[in-house]
């Protein structure tokens, strides 16, 4: 098992965000996380990526307890995420956004910058090369030297996905990767995500678009009020009376 989350609990001022939430994920598996707004999906991502500490519960990633690790350590363990509200560094270049996502920090060491440029210049060049390859893969190579702010909304979503790939994460947490973008870009992003298992990567995807979920997820978890209501293949979950009830409420 790649990821084993057990009995997470989290409350925000008395509002239940996660209640005894458990989840297991195998290597190279893509699962969908669905549910109404406020169900606790994003909170789960925040807990998993170390931005929010759970009140109780345990997260084991590849045999290692990361429940209380800081967010930057979790990235180095191999978990990378995107944000629902699309966080990119808009006033820096597209390519710099990607370079920042690589897990190489030799060039951020002050001693190396002043006295040992050789220790990172080469890695930086290689990263640049890789960044261009990733941009080419995503089809926005011509935008490399634009400000991230000048990209269209869809391209920004694409870029944030590319940043996750650059981080070389084994597990990607994608928060609404296709919400509000045009069909063409949607296909592009769908293709990139569906190729993740081929690259040995897994993903958990939060998305409201059921058609999208059915096309790429082998397993779906339905959440409501911080609890897991239903789990199974997309069609099983879709036809689960408890799910229908939750949506009708």
């Amino acid at each position: 098992m790649m990821l084993k989350v057990s009995n997470l609990n989290k409350n925000f001022d008395g509002v239940v965000a996660l209640k005894d939430f458990s989840l297991e994920l195998k290597e190279k598996e893509i699962i969908g996380l669905i549910g109404p707004n406020g169900a606790g999906k994003t909170t789960f991502f925040n807990v998993l990526s170390g931005f929010v500490k759970p009140e109780s519960g345990k997260i084991i990633y590849r045999g290692k307890d990361i429940t209380n690790s800081g967010s930057h350590n979790i990235v180095f363990e191999g978990i990378s995420r995107t944000f629902q509200d699309l966080r990119l560094i808009r006033q820096i270049l597209v390519i710099e956004n990607i370079l920042l996502s690589f897990n190489h920090t030799n060039g951020e060491n002050i001693y190396n910058i002043m006295f040992n440029q050789r220790s990172w210049k080469k890695i930086e060049e290689q990263d640049k090369q890789k960044a261009f390859e990733l941009l080419e893969y995503a089809g926005i190579k011509d935008k490399a030297n634009d400000l991230a702010n000048d990209l269209s909304y869809g391209q920004q979503k694409l870029l944030s996905l590319i940043c996750c790939l650059a981080a070389d994460a084994k597990l990607l947490l994608l928060d609404e990767p296709i919400a509000g973008i045009n069909p063409e870009m949607r296909e592009k992003i769908l293709n990139i995500i569906s190729e993740l298992p081929l690259k040995g990567k897994s993903a958990i995807i939060i998305e409201h678009d059921m058609d999208f979920i059915e096309r790429i997820c082998s397993r779906v978890i339905f959440m409501d009020m911080g609890e897991k209501i239903s789990e199974g293949t997309p069609s099983e979950v879709r036809n689960d009376p408890k799910v229908i009830e939750a949506y009708l409420e």
Binding site: S71, F76, S80, F83, R87, I89, R90, A167
Partner: peptide
């Protein structure tokens, strides 16, 4: 510069 623009993204970038 990344910290200046968005601390949360920078943290998420590890």
């Amino acid at each position: 510069k990344a910290i200046r623009e968005d601390e949360v993204f920078t943290q998420a970038a590890g």
